[in-house]
């Protein structure tokens, strides 16, 4: 184990630092992310690849370090996203619930303030989200949709690139514990 590994890999949950945010942040940030997804691609078409609500779920889950909180945040954001899509309610909801839960679980073991790890996690969870959605659409709804793997990998990379500075900005919104 190198020193770098030691830094990334936490000794255990006891060392994990739980970040706190103002209650308004839990409403406003997801709302901005969803509005961005609803409004911005209308004018800048190529930005439609950005899955900001997913990045917000990943960020809050990583920083809260509580699987229950991560799952609940994922559920709420996912259901709102479902409401604004043509899919039945629950498709994005279940996918984001799992993302929230697992990202919070991972955050208990790693130093999630490391930018490289944030990049990798964002990349991984985007792919996980896309695959989960595809599995649910085929398995639960019987929809014959295709999983475009090369496109998903490119989108995952681009989302991960955006995630790093976005997480740094959102770090500023954290409330310091007294």
């Amino acid at each position: 184990m190198t020193e770098y590994d030691d830094r990334i890999l936490q000794a255990g949950p006891r060392k994990a630092k739980i970040s706190h945010f103002r209650p308004a942040a839990y409403i406003i940030i997801p709302l901005i992310a969803i509005l961005f997804q609803v409004y911005v691609p209308r004018f800048v078409d190529f930005l439609s690849y950005l899955e900001l609500p997913l990045l917000v779920v990943v960020y809050f889950s990583l920083m809260r370090r509580q699987p229950v909180a991560g799952a609940v945040i994922g559920t709420v954001i996912g259901l709102v996203q479902d409401s604004l899509s043509q899919h039945p309610l629950g498709m994005f909801g279940i996918a984001k619930t799992l993302v929230g839960y697992f990202s919070a679980s991972i955050s208990m073991r790693f130093d999630v303030e490391n930018n490289a790890l944030r990049f990798i996690l964002s990349f991984f969870f985007f792919l996980f989200h896309q695959v989960a959605f595809w599995v649910f659409a085929r398995g639960l709804l019987g929809q014959n949709i295709e999983l475009q793997i090369p496109q998903s990998i490119i989108f995952a990379f681009l989302n991960a690139v955006v995630a790093v500075p976005l997480f740094l900005i959102m770090d500023k919104l954290r409330v310091e514990e007294q």
Binding site: I34, Q37, V38, Y39, P41, R42, S48, Y49, L50, E51, P53, Q81, D82, L84, S85, Q86, H87, F92, Q130, Q151, F155, N159
Partner: peptide, 15 residues
């Protein structure tokens, strides 16, 4: 008139 797009990456639905 289109006022927004649907959620989801690469979504092809509009409001």
């Amino acid at each position: 008139r289109v006022i927004g797009t649907g959620t989801g990456a690469n979504s092809r639905v509009v409001f």
